[in-house]
């Protein structure tokens, strides 16, 4: 089996070769219950997800809007936990060895799990990277070495408030891809403006060769297509988790999004 980080790099290389942006789908582990969460996760690649973000449930998700908050609470209520999220990922890896999976969550459950043990177990379960929303570069020294040792990319976030002065701090030690937060605000509330995203992505590209995924505020196929013209990947989360009680509807939306993302650049040329 290839080293975990290879999956993210390989996927972005393949997307570049195809000349299109990727679709990153965010779903919450254990939401709305273990069985349906597994069905949702297992069906994402066939529905058109290029990369998967698997949310780790947390009781106090400060950076998330109502949809993801509700998803986290549903997961916890149904018995979800960090350990079970890793088990869900390990089960997924029995059916899929190529789709990159990035675990996304908050630091406290990882800190309590033990950063070193968490990185080891996450890599063993088949994770390729980590996004820890409330762990800025200034604080991530207690996770980064363990992530690197386990072969996990620690994906950094840049936002509209990350100016040129701060960008080098964010990029230093970043790996896998850069996650650009398109809006000021929490997940699933405001809509991302494609022209502003285009400017921001162009600005960031001058400082890094990492692929840039754009998320927060992409709700539907037209929105995804607009972002896919500029970014290397676009992330959809809140709109998906809102459908977690109906896995087939969720996969249906992923198919629509995938079609929009795949057609985005050809349409622009035409």
């Amino acid at each position: 089996m290839s080293r975990p980080t290879a999956r993210i790099a390989a996927r972005f290389a393949a997307l570049a070769a195809e000349g299109r942006a990727g679709l990153v789908t965010y779903v919450m582990a254990g939401d709305p219950d273990a069985a349906r969460a597994q069905a949702i996760l297992d069906g994402l690649p066939a529905a058109g997800a290029d990369i998967i973000e698997l949310g780790l449930p947390f009781s106090d998700p400060m950076a998330d809007g109502p949809a993801v908050q509700a998803a986290a609470l549903r997961s916890l209520k149904a018995g979800g936990s960090t350990r079970k999220a890793l088990a869900q990922l390990a089960a997924f890896r029995k059916t899929d060895q190529t789709t990159p999976v990035v675990l996304m969550g908050y630091f406290n459950p990882i800190y309590i799990y033990g950063p070193e043990r968490f990185c080891r177990d996450a890599a063993a379960a088949g994770a390729d990277g980590l996004i820890v929303v409330d762990l800025p570069p200034e604080e991530d020294a207690e996770l980064r070495p363990f992530a690197q040792a386990a072969g996990l990319d620690l994906v950094r976030l840049a936002t509209p408030t990350t100016d040129d002065k701060r960008l080098p701090t964010v990029l230093s030690g970043a790996s896998g891809f850069l996650y650009y937060v398109a809006v000021l605000g929490v997940t699933g509330t405001r809509s991302a403006a494609a022209d502003q995203v285009a400017t921001a992505v162009a600005r960031i590209r001058r400082s890094t060769t990492l692929p840039i995924a754009v998320g927060f505020g992409i709700k539907d196929a037209p929105g995804a297509a607009a972002i896919a013209r500029h970014a290397d990947a676009c992330v959809v989360g809140s709109a998906l988790v809102a459908l977690s009680d109906k896995p087939t509807s969720l996969h249906g939306l992923v198919r629509d999004l995938a079609a929009a993302v795949r057609g985005a650049r050809t349409k622009q040329i035409a």
Binding site: F107, D134, E139, R156, L157, T162
Partner: peptide, 20 residues
């Protein structure tokens, strides 16, 4: 200087808030 009292304190916020 980084806002720690021994092991405690710090700045565990999302990147949007960091510059602020």
């Amino acid at each position: 200087e980084s806002g720690h009292f021994g092991l405690f304190g710090g700045r565990y916020v999302s990147e949007t808030l960091m510059p602020l």
